[in-house]
């Protein structure tokens, strides 16, 4: 086993994400656009927006992960790259994890870092808590990307697999969404919720790569 194929997969995925010059701006635009729909949809009342703001950002992050993951393995399965990954002599699970991580770096982490600005638009008060929340969004979105990656790997050979990925992955997003929303609610139980959030993300990072590997071997058949 060697680490070279894993690094190559990581670089390839990062390159793909930045190709075309838009890079992280494209997912950011999606997040911004999706979030702007909210005040239009539910009304511009300040108190309401303040209450739903953190949750809206969680939902937008989940959607952003689903939208960007659709092609993560599909293009590899189509052009034969996947067959090369499988013969590269590195664990397929590690390659899948590296690709997922690269996608999170280009479409998950930037959105989390952008979240304080969105929170301000949803009438949250400017405070260091917004930066803490950005960290929680980063942590939670990592779980979104890993579980979404399982859905993407399973539907890599399915034409128009985007909706299928959503249906597969959304039940798996539940713990992250609940722990994340609980951590930001400030209500009872919110003190321990970040730890639960971290635990569920670690669980996703530990389990999802093996499921992705099994699914990718299937896609290459």
């Amino acid at each position: 086993m060697s680490a070279a194929p894993i690094l190559a997969a990581f670089r390839q995925s990062l390159g793909e994400a930045w190709a075309g010059g838009a890079g992280a701006l494209l997912p950011l635009g999606f997040l911004g656009g999706a979030s702007v729909l909210v005040p239009l949809g539910i009304g511009s009342d300040g108190e309401t927006l303040k209450a739903v703001g953190p949750g809206i950002i969680w939902v937008a992050l989940a959607l952003a992960s689903l939208v960007t993951l659709e092609r993560i393995f599909q293009s590899d399965a189509e052009d034969g790259t996947l067959d090369l990954w499988l013969q590269a002599g590195a664990p397929v699970s590690a390659i899948a994890a590296a690709k997922t991580l690269a996608h999170w770096l280009s479409a998950g982490l930037p959105l989390a870092l952008f979240s304080p600005l969105l929170a301000l638009m949803f009438q949250a008060e400017a405070s260091p808590a917004l930066l803490v929340n950005a960290g929680l969004y980063a942590l939670g979105s990592l779980a979104f990307f890993f579980w979404g990656g399982v859905g993407a790997a399973l539907s890599a050979t399915v034409r128009r697999g985007g909706l299928l990925i959503s249906l597969i992955a959304l039940p798996l997003y539940v713990p992250t969404a609940i722990f994340g929303a609980l951590a930001m609610s400030g209500g009872p139980g919110s003190a321990g919720a970040p730890l639960f959030l971290a635990a569920s993300t670690l669980f996703a990072c530990a389990v999802a790569p093996y499921a992705m590997a099994a699914a990718l071997r299937l896609a290459a058949d």
């Binding site: 039940p171 713990p175 609940i178």
Partner: peptide, 28 residues
């Protein structure tokens, strides 16, 4: 054959997630 393999992977991923889903909703 593909349906069987993909389905089996998904069912197992779902099964190991059920305790976590259950635990998270129990916090409500």
């Amino acid at each position: 054959q593909k349906a069987a393999r993909a389905g089996a992977i998904l069912a197992m991923v779902g099964a190991i997630n059920i305790p976590l889903i259950k635990f998270s909703v129990d916090l409500f």
